[in-house]
Simulated assay, not measured.
Amino acid sequence: MIAQLHRIGVRSAYLQAASMGSVALCIGLWIRAKTVDQEERGNAERRALFVGLWPPTLWLIGDTLRELE
């Protein structure tokens, strides 16, 4: 899978930038969750936590691509 990503032009810097962007997205979603009413808050917090799982995955894929480069 990593070799195929490299072959189609995905670079490690792209994935590491996406990782940092998902951290910002997670924080934004978490702040937004505090502004919605109580009925929707649980779903909004779960969405923020789900997005919070992306950064380590994207970063590690980027590290693996960097080794290939």
Rank of each mutant, 00 (worst) to 15 (best):
A17F: 09
R66M: 11
S19P: 00
A33V: 09
G42L: 11
I8A: 11
E67L: 14
G42T: 13
E67W: 14
A17S: 15
T64A: 13
I61G: 03
V10D: 06
D37A: 14
N43H: 13
W54R: 05
A18P: 00
L5Q: 08
Q16M: 13
Y14S: 03
N43Q: 14
G52L: 06
D37E: 15
G62F: 03
L58G: 02
Q16K: 15
V23Q: 00
N43W: 11
Q16W: 06
P55V: 02
Q16I: 06
L60A: 09
R46V: 09
E45I: 12
L60F: 07
F50M: 12
L53C: 12
Q4T: 14
W59T: 03
N43M: 14
S22V: 01
S22I: 00
L58C: 04
L58I: 04
Q16P: 03
A18W: 01
T35E: 15
E39M: 08
L53Q: 13
R41H: 12
R41A: 14
L60S: 05
I31S: 07
W30C: 04
T35F: 10
A33I: 12
R46K: 15
A18D: 02
R47G: 00
S12V: 04
L5S: 08
L49R: 07
A48N: 09
T57L: 12
A44G: 06
R46T: 10
